[in-house]
Amino acid sequence: MKSYLRNAWLIAKTIGIEAIRRKEIYAIVLVSLVLIGGLRLVKFFDVEGLGKFYREISLKVMNVATALTVILLAARQLPREFQNRTLYPLLAKPIRRDNFLMGKFLGVMLAAAFCYAMFMAVFLFGSLTIKSPVNTGLFLQFVYLQLWNFAVLGGLAFLLSLLLNIDAAITICILLYVFSQVLMTLMSYIYDYTSAWQQTFLLGLHFVIPQLSLFDLSGKVVHGIWPPIASWAILALTAYGAVYTVLYLSGSYLLFRRRAL
């Protein structure tokens, strides 16, 4: 187990080095700086209620930017290894393919967590500056669930990247990300007006496509008037995220396990 984790960590580190040296992380810093600039404007005009607006926009930008980072990073990891033939010397070392895959996934998650932490730092600093602090418990729950959101997306991007080419995998993953945000709302509107087989189809879709909106507590954080959500709900959402992540990673492993290099 120790060597499994060590190998995964070694592989994960390469993704961190790549993200830093390829300057992708700097794009995130740039977005953060824009946020800070926006915050200064909010403070300058001192308009009532703009604190909530600031929180809403900031959290939305953070979530979308980090989700896109995860999709882009995860979807190109394996195809690039194949294309650049960097896989050969790596898999000639004493490392199993599942261990390699886990290392890649861990790397993507760490890069996502790093981006998100940077955003969070800017966001919290901004919230304190405009004297509009967030509910700490709720905020921690929000961050925790967002990480599960990114894990599900990362797993999905890995799976799609083994089935399709990079561009198609990224496009479909982004479409599914957007679709999953609105699926539940859409279903609640149209479900009662559909035929039996359409309802079955919608229910099937409901289970196949992960409901990523379930992980989004940003509405609660923006308004800040609700207490943190119950522990059982957090546990249930953790299990929900874990099931999808494991399913996608297992699918990726099954495709990668016997793939000829």
Partner: peptide
Amino acid sequence: YLPEVALYYPF
């Protein structure tokens, strides 16, 4: 092992 054509992580 040395592969026939191998590129190593350029970064």
